[in-house]
Amino acid sequence: MTKTKTLLALALIGVCATASARGDIEMLARTCNGCHGVGGVSVGLSMPSIGGLPKEYLRNIMKQWKYDERSAITMNRIVKGLSDDEIDALAAHFAKQRWVPAPQQASAALLAKGKSAISENCEDCHGFTGSDPDVDAPRINGQWAKYMELELAKYRDPRFKMPHRKMKKAAQDMKPAEVPAAAGYFGAQDK
């Protein structure tokens, strides 16, 4: 094979050592693009960017959805059709992509309110801008604020199964008005 052919073969078939015997991880990952964007960079305000999130986090939450340990609106249905190997390969695939923040505009008042809310309750685990998270947490700097608001609503609602107890508690301790402020604050960060 020529070099370009080899590269192409790699792109088509996937280089992932853990790629499942059932098929082609690139092909599978492309099915996510319709909702999460190419390379996991979303352009839809309510849909999260997933490219560049930590492998362990990605793997962990997909398995939680698959085994009904975690609530979701859509993802729980999608991942149930995937094998554990495929989930591992997808996690590795998206973790390898670059995190591309989408810093969103927010009013000075909202940013100030967000900043004070997060420095009390969130900074310890997520970092001051959301880009320096604990090992089990995802980056949230420049994540879509609308998506984070919806996610925080899930952490705050006891009817939703969200297994991370500390994050759940932090979300439930927020005042209702702090939710959009914190989401808007992290969403506005580019670094």
Partner: peptide, 21 residues
Amino acid sequence: RSYRKMEVAYADGWLRNLLAD
């Protein structure tokens, strides 16, 4: 109801990504 409401938001995000894709 909050669950049903979230799907309205996801429909919009889905369409934007699908158009871009």
